[in-house]
Design a binder for these strands. Structure first.
Lengths: 116, 116
DNA sequence: GAAGTATGTCGCAAATATACGTCATATTAT
DNA sequence: ATAATATGACGTATATTTGCGACATACTTC
């Protein structure tokens, strides 16, 4: 029963953690940046620009697709991946809200003590 | 040599991924929110509010501390953890920049096809 | 239909993450 | 000093992630 206590947290916290996990690998960050720069991308091209095998890239793509952060349209022989900008905007707001909440706290100074 | 291809990516991408990984667990999200709500927190109190054992919470705290997202000051017998709001603000900007880049792309529509 | 091309799926090995009990350490109180 | 309390460190079992090769599938072309 190890490693499955996620259910005990807020759906909000879980959602944030889920998306964070999707961004928790440089390859996936790179993939999103790549899709953002070019409008049209096919899976093969993506693998060509990353220092990973095609199989591994495909796996990362599936992970992003599982969260619906990216979409893949089959276009004949190739697949056209693109960003789900709508969802990304929602996610952005979630992160923004979280960071605002976190940085609003008038906690510690630069490197010295707390006020406790 | 599995699982260490991170070096092949941009330092920027790695940094974003590192922070994302720190947020990739609901417990750590919860911890940050908890520290944001209360200015003063000690590790024991934190564990008391989470559905995890004290040991596990301590581990999560160490992970956040390793990234310097939180600070811990020893105050006699207890430890006072608090957020590193300065760093959090920097991180917030990194995420914001990333999301702006990602959402700026005029890619797909709601659920239909790409324009490729 | 056969051959070639583009992708996804499956299974495997190694590395990490998660969760927790137990012990070690440090501080306070008696 | 001794006992009690609060934490971190260590070890361990399990689950998950990562990376990749080999195979399967689907479409195009000839």
């Amino acid at each position: 029963m190890t490693y499955a206590k996620t259910a005990a947290f807020t759906e909000e916290q879980q959602q944030l953690a889920r998306v964070a996990k999707a961004l928790a690998h440089p390859a996936r960050v790179a993939i999103i940046q790549l899709l953002a720069s070019k409008q049209t991308c096919i899976s093969g091209d993506i693998a060509a620009e990353l220092p990973l095998s095609r199989t591994t890239v495909s796996q990362h793509l599936q992970e992003l697709k599982a969260l619906d952060l990216i979409r893949g349209e089959i276009d004949g022989l190739t697949v056209c991946y693109c960003l789900n900008t709508e969802l990304l905007q929602q996610v952005q707001q979630q992160f923004t809200a979280f960071f605002i909440e976190a940085t609003a706290s008038p906690a510690c100074g630069p490197a010295d003590a707390c006020s406790c």
